[in-house]
Design a protein around this nucleic acid. Structure first.
Lengths: 143, 143
DNA sequence: GACCATGATGATAATGATTATCATGAACAT
DNA sequence: ATGTTCATGATAATCATTATCATCATGGTC
C-alpha cells in the first residue's frame, strides 16, 4: 500500500539530491509499494511494463537502488538467489524464517533476541549497527 | 591445522561416492585447512599454485564444493562479496560480527540466542534446521 | 606390471545477475 | 521558450560462478 508519506519522502530525497521526478519514478514507487513483499528487479520490471510500456530494465534497477538509498526499500540477498527488494516505509525491522522447500519467507521479530545480540556484540568490543538473522528450515505446509 | 581425521573423512567420502584421490585433492585439503579462515576460491587458488604448479581454478572451485558436501567446509556469502569458505572440522556452529569498515569477521557464539531462535521458529509453526546470524557494525579498531 | 574404464584435471567458454555506457529524450529553473 | 543537466532505454561490459570437453591419471583387474 503506497502512502502519501512515502511519496513525500521520495520526492524530498530527489529534491535534496538535485534529481528529477519522472513518470517512471512515480510508477516504480507505486507498483513497488503495492506489490508483494520481496520482489525481484525482474518481477517488478514485468509488472511495470503494463503500466509504463517501453520502460527499461536498467531504469527499474537504478531506481530500486535509489529507493534503498532513501530508506524506502531494503535489498535482501539470500545465498545465491537474485536480489529481492522489500518496501520499508512504516515497517520496523524483522528477521526471516526461510522455508528450504517452498522458499517462502516468514517475517518475525523478537525483542529478547535483539537485546541479546547487542550484548553479545558489546562483549566483543563491537559496536552493532544492524543485523541479519535468517533461520532456515521447513514451514508448516512443507515439513 | 589439518588433522589426520579430516583427511580420513575426506577419503572416506571419496570412496563412498566412487571418486578418486588425487594429488590436487590432497593439497587442496592441506592448504585449505592450514590457511586463514574465510578464504575465497581465488585466494586458495593462488596459494595452491605454489604447491601444485599448473593447478586450475576450476579444480580448486570444484573441490571446495566437494569439501562442503562432505561437511569439511562451509560456504559463506555476505552481501555481494564473493563466496568465502571456512574449514569446519572440529568447529561448532558460530555467528559472525562483521566490521563494516575493515571487513574483518569475529566469530561468536551465544547459547541463549540459539535457544530463543528455536522458540521463535516453533512459535511460527516452523521447523528450524540451521540459521545464519550476522551482526554488522564496527570493531574495536575501527569504531 | 600392463590394461582399461571412468573419473579428474585444466583451459576455456558459457552463464546469469548486476552494473556501466552513451545517444537521445525529458524535467525544471530561468 | 530555452538551455542545462539529469533520466531513460538499449545494449554492452563486468565479474563471479559454473559448464564443457579433450586429455590425463587413478585404481581396480587380469
Amino acid at each position: 500500500m503506497i502512502t502519501h508519506k512515502a511519496k513525500d519522502i521520495f520526492k524530498d530525497y530527489l529534491f535534496e539530491k538535485g534529481l528529477r521526478n519522472t513518470r517512471q519514478r512515480e510508477e516504480i514507487l507505486n507498483v513497488f509499494f503495492s506489490a508483494d513483499k520481496h520482489i525481484t528487479v525482474e518481477e517488478l520490471f514485468n509488472m511495470l511494463k503494463k503500466t509504463v510500456p517501453g520502460i527499461g530494465y536498467a531504469t527499474v534497477h537504478r531506481n530500486l537502488i535509489l529507493l534503498c538509498e532513501c530508506g524506502l526499500a531494503e535489498e535482501i540477498k539470500i545465498g545465491k538467489q537474485k536480489s529481492r527488494y522489500e518496501p520499508k516505509f512504516g515497517h520496523e525491522h524483522h528477521d526471516h524464517l526461510i522455508c528450504m522447500k517452498c522458499g517462502r519467507f516468514i517475517e518475525v521479530n523478537d525483542d529478547k533476541i535483539e537485546k541479546l545480540q547487542d550484548k553479545l556484540a558489546e562483549a566483543n568490543d563491537f559496536s552493532p549497527v544492524r543485523h541479519k538473522l535468517e533461520i532456515y528450515g521447513y514451514c508448516k505446509e512443507c515439513r
